[in-house]
């Protein structure tokens, strides 16, 4: 009888002395297997709730930026990344990035981007772009808001990061984020110039870095540069400017 046999093998295994190396390996394997199955099942079962909480936090950050600027509810736009044209439906495909283009350390980027436009009648007053990129030891998630000329920063906020507390993590502080207001992103030739500098910033393209957080600062510089550039929202912003929306 196969069942009887299986029970016997199990019995024989349990009856082996605890000093036996086969039993040691077997127990280690079974404990690891049991624990990983239970943890995985919990994680899968709770995933929708966890995702919803993270989404709500990101939406809360968007609501904050909109509230702080005192503007009407933005319109959600799906944008084809390479052409900058509006799309009616999102696609879920991603494009791999060459290492020399990959300023934000993303490895790959979605082909459909989301942008939020705020209009006063037909006139564009604000564009809010979700941005993300590698910091010093975590991925930084935030929103970049541009004024109607599409070259002046209205706000930069971060809502998710795991940088060093008291140093890189201070990019979450409103005081630092406020430094970005009214800075210009690109010069007359269209090259992106805005960056975080170590020490005191001078001029309209520079933002004071946080002392002790140079690499987080570089991460922020690079991710802003990436998302405003040709592999990010560049084509979309260029199209808005051309249409005289800017």
């Amino acid at each position: 009888m196969p069942d009887q046999k299986r029970v016997n093998i199990w019995r024989a295994f349990l009856n082996r002395p605890n000093t036996d190396s086969a039993k040691t390996l077997g127990v280690a394997f079974l404990v690891a297997l049991g624990c990983s199955v239970i943890v995985s099942l919990t994680a899968i079962y709770l995933k929708p709730l966890l995702d919803a909480n993270r989404l709500r936090e990101s939406a809360g950050s968007l609501v904050e930026i909109v509230d702080a600027l005192g503007v009407p509810v933005p319109q959600v736009r799906l944008v084809e990344r390479t052409s900058g044209e509006y799309l009616s439906r999102a696609t879920s495909d991603k494009a791999a990035l060459d290492p020399d283009q990959d300023l934000a350390g993303l490895k790959e980027v979605e082909n459909t981007l989301t942008a939020y436009e705020v209009r006063d009648g037909a006139r564009l007053t604000l564009v809010i772009l979700p941005v993300r990129g590698a910091g010093y030891k975590s991925t930084l998630h935030g929103y970049l808001a541009l004024k109607a000329d599409l070259n002046t920063i209205a706000a930069l906020t971060f809502y998710q990061q795991d940088e060093t507390p008291g140093m890189g993590a201070r990019i979450m502080e409103k005081k630092w984020q406020d430094l970005w207001r009214d800075k210009k992103t690109a010069d007359a030739t269209g090259a992106i110039q805005i960056r975080v500098v170590t020490g005191a910033a001078s001029g309209i393209y520079e933002v004071d870095g946080i002392s002790g957080a140079t690499r987080t600062g570089n991460g922020v510089s690079n991710l802003v540069k990436f998302w405003l550039g040709t592999n990010g929202y560049g084509p979309y912003l260029a199209r808005l400017k051309q249409q005289g929306d800017g």
């Binding site: 605890n18 127990v27 280690a28 690891a32 990983s36 239970i38 943890v39 919990t42």
Partner: peptide, 22 residues
């Protein structure tokens, strides 16, 4: 009764850590 003495602490910590993650 079936925890070998040589990996006793590892087994205990594995179980505790799994519960903590949950």
């Amino acid at each position: 009764a079936h925890i070998p003495n040589s990996i006793r602490l590892i087994v205990q910590i594995t179980i505790i850590a799994s519960l903590v993650i949950i």
